[in-house]
Amino acid sequence: MTSARPTRHREMLRVRDAIDARYGEPLDLATLATSVHLSPDHLVRQFRETFGETPHRYLQRRRIERLSHDEERSDEGAAERGAPAPSTPEREAERARPLHHRGLPAGRLHEPRDVQPDLREHRG
C-alpha cells in the first residue's frame, strides 16, 4: 500500500505536466484519465488530493497566469519599441475617468501646450 502513493503522485504529476504542455488546446478529462489508467471521477479526486484543486481549476488558473504573463511581455516589448501599450479594460476605464479624478490639475484640461504663456491671456 505504501508504494501505491508515490506511484499515484507520479501519475498526477504526469497529468499536470500534460495540462501544462497543452494548456492552449481543448483538453478532455476522459483522455487525461485514460493516460493514467483512471476513471475521470477518480482522476478528479486524486488530482484534488495531490494538488489541492481540480484539474479544471488548475487549467483555468494556468491559462490566466499565462495570459497575464504574455500581456506583461507584450507591454514591455511595446515600450521598448516606443509603441503605445495595448489597450486593456483597466486602461480604458482609467482613460474614461475625468482628469481631476486622476489627480491632475483641472486648469490644464483646456490649455494647449503649444500656446505661449503671454498669448493665453488674449484668447477670446
Rank of each mutant, 00 (worst) to 15 (best):
A4H: 00
A4K: 14
R5F: 09
R5A: 03
H9M: 09
R10D: 11
E11G: 06
E11L: 03
M12E: 00
R14S: 11
R16M: 09
D17F: 01
A18R: 13
A18H: 09
I19A: 01
I19F: 07
D20Q: 02
G24E: 15
G24W: 06
P26L: 01
P26Y: 05
L27S: 10
D28W: 01
L29F: 00
T31D: 14
S35W: 03
V36C: 06
S39E: 05
P40I: 02
D41I: 06
H42K: 13
L43V: 01
V44C: 11
Q46H: 10
F47G: 02
F47A: 03
E49D: 15
T50H: 12
G52P: 11
E53A: 13
E53D: 08
T54F: 01
H56L: 02
R57Q: 15
R57V: 05
L59V: 02
R61Y: 10
R61D: 12
R63G: 08
R63N: 08
R63Y: 05
I64C: 08
I64T: 15
R66D: 11
L67I: 07
D70V: 04
E71S: 09
E71W: 05
E72Q: 12
E72R: 12
R73F: 01
R73P: 01
R73Q: 15
E76T: 12
E76I: 09
E76M: 14
A78L: 05
E80A: 15
E80H: 12
E80I: 14
R81W: 06
G82D: 01
A83H: 14
A83G: 00
A83P: 02
P84S: 08
P84A: 06
P84N: 04
A85K: 13
A85L: 07
S87H: 04
T88W: 07
T88E: 03
P89L: 12
P89R: 11
E90S: 11
R91V: 13
E92L: 09
E94F: 14
R95Q: 15
A96H: 03
P98W: 08
L99C: 04
L99S: 12
H101G: 05
G103Q: 06
P105M: 02
A106D: 05
R108E: 12
H110S: 07
E111P: 06
E111I: 15
P112W: 07
R113A: 14
R113E: 13
D114N: 09
V115Y: 08
V115N: 00
Q116V: 02
P117E: 10
D118P: 11
L119D: 15
L119P: 03
R120H: 12
R120Y: 08
E121M: 13
E121I: 04
E121H: 08
H122R: 10
G124W: 10
G124I: 05
